[in-house]
Write a protein that binds this DNA or RNA. Structure first.
Lengths: 332, 332
DNA sequence: TGATTGTTTTACAACGTTGTTATTTAGAAG
DNA sequence: CTTCTAAATAACAACGTTGTAAAACAATCA
């Protein structure tokens, strides 16, 4: 037997509509009454009935999340954090693992108030779905048909290169996947090239960009062989993703190359798991917690205040120092 | 403006309560009327209002899933499949990534009708939570305080060994994690030892059990070195998990050992991704789809028909042949 | 024909909440 | 003391659905 506002009303000796207003902090009830009602509600363990609220308010307080088919540690972590963040709000989340169109069908059935979409291609066309949609991905030319949260891959890589440069590194490799159609990977790759140009160390690094052709652990691992086969040895490596960097660490270890004494390593993706690598990895990227908070609150904003224009939000990546980078020796 | 049963009633020229009954296939309305109403509802794009249904029925039609903190491919896939399966039912799912107690708090707030718990330790104590809970894990002595779905790890490994034995293999290695406190891993390990005993090949294999101490790709990869260092060469390997087996495949490849010509490999975990390995892996285990179906429908059963006793359901693992195993040469 | 029964339909309360309108109360002004 | 006003509270419809009780209709029987 769950307690309702009517139960509270009886105990408090007021009408149930007063209880409703009191609990919603309405200016129509006396402060004193509010306090009394709140106390009683708390004591009785009152929890509002979402169904009733939904019925009258026309708001479901549910948001839909379209989960990408490929499971990667980073995205799983992001989903986790988003879920955590949502728990602090009145909203809850339903997950859909179906393709976009089917997902939206499901969301319509459940009358979600909004949706989050993890999508590489920001320029998807969505028809016949009215609640606000927030996409997490790369914005093209800082514009998009939908509001976008963009973790600014380019700037992240730039920060990594800057950091290494300041430590004295001039020969820096980039190990990552460089496919034709994944704007995220392309952004990182472009970021790397731009950074080299900025610091004027472009020429030295012509060959030390290694396309792993995959995003898995082993892709990073085997890239080390290719790297060592190059004529120009390198003093630092930027790994394009968590998994790739994990492979890099293993690969270097197997070759008896020490991190950071012999070579510095820095990884894209700023997730807590970086700490748990055999060598805790210095990494760049927007911390997932921050990303999750931004995503959740931007969507809530969108749902509650009818924003006029689709907005692109660039997030600022941060560099988290751990112990996988060291200054170049001859500089000291 | 969404359509309600009242809208349908007007068009159909009947009362809205008749519409409600017709749509619920009640015996109280004429077949003819049912058809007419159904047709109109369909045409008007009617979708029931869950909030209203929940309010009157006291059922939320939501189930809670407690997501384990560690993200592994297999569990992610299982969650995915469960979500898919749930989509075919009137139920939807909310995810919680919090620890057990907090998860249950959340679930109470949302008035879930039931919960699924991925848990190593089946003998958790849960207080103050009334909806049925289904746990996915290893049953101890075929009994538990809660209904359990158990994928029968032991039998799975037995099937793997039997299969290899019939192909003529006598020297079989097991590469897996063997921790003190994870019943799942222990069950597989025990299964392997029992199988050897059954086939009388126990003695030969004393040394060819390799504890990877981890469940990651690299753990399987590096286990290959240890395996090759053994005096007794082996003709077949059983990998204890998807990730470990993926590492095994890479490890063998790096040593120029061909699968299945030089060595046969079979993996625990029956997920579709096995197909996408460099060598599509023959694998044993309850197929995730089946697992998902069983989990979902057992829980629904539990929720809808108040089962009397907590029941342990052992699932039968199947062996899916792909191309990573071959008969021993000298037998042919 | 009217009573009796069974079938089909309708009316309506209920679920727990919010928002609007009506009522009560208290204090100020005349 | 009324009368008026503002503040506080109460009453009640509404949200969309289900289930129960009541009504309408049709067919059967005496």
């Amino acid at each position: 037997m769950t307690v309702t506002i009517k139960d509270i009303a009886k105990v408090a000796g007021v009408s149930y509509s007063t209880v409703s207003k009191a609990l919603n902090d309405s200016p129509l009830v006396k402060g004193e009454t509010k306090k009394k009602v709140a106390a009683i509600a708390n004591e009785m363990g009152y929890a509002p009935n979402f169904a009733a609220q939904h019925l009258v308010s026309k708001k479901s307080k549910i948001i839909g999340l379209i989960w990408p088919t490929i499971e990667r540690a980073v995205l799983a972590t992001l989903v986790t954090k988003i879920s955590n963040e949502l728990n602090k709000t009145p909203y809850s989340m339903i997950l859909s693992v179906d393709p976009l169109e089917r997902s939206l069908e499901t969301f319509k059935k459940y009358k979600v108030d909004g949706a989050i979409l993890f999508e590489e291609d920001v320029n998807v066309k969505i028809s016949n779905f009215s609640p606000p949609i927030l996409v997490y991905g790369v914005s093209r030319n800082n514009s998009s048909d939908y509001p976008v949260i963009d973790p600014d891959h380019q700037q992240a890589i730039l920060k990594a290169v800057t950091y290494l440069y300041k430590l004295g590194h001039r020969k820096i490799a980039y190990i990552g996947q460089i496919p034709q159609n994944d704007p995220r990977q392309i952004a990182k790759y472009e970021g790397f090239k731009k950074a080299l140009k900025k610091f004027g160390i472009e020429e030295l690094n012509k060959t030390s960009i290694i396309n792993t052709e995959g995003l898995d652990w082993y892709d990073g691992y085997s890239a080390i062989n290719k790297l060592l086969a190059l004529d120009e040895p390198v003093t630092a490596i930027i790994g394009g993703s968590y998994d790739i960097s994990a492979g890099i660490v293993r690969g270097l270890k197997d070759k008896q190359i020490n991190i950071p004494e012999d070579i510095s390593v820095i990884s894209y993706d700023n997730i807590p798991q970086m700490e748990n690598q055999e060598v805790p990895l210095t990494s760049v990227g927007v911390p997932v917690e921050q990303l999750a908070i931004k995503i959740v609150h931007t969507l809530i904003d969108l749902m509650e205040n009818e924003q006029p224009l689709p907005q692109v939000t660039m997030m600022t990546p941060v560099l988290t120092e751990r112990i996988s980078c060291a200054p170049i020796k001859q500089y000291y």
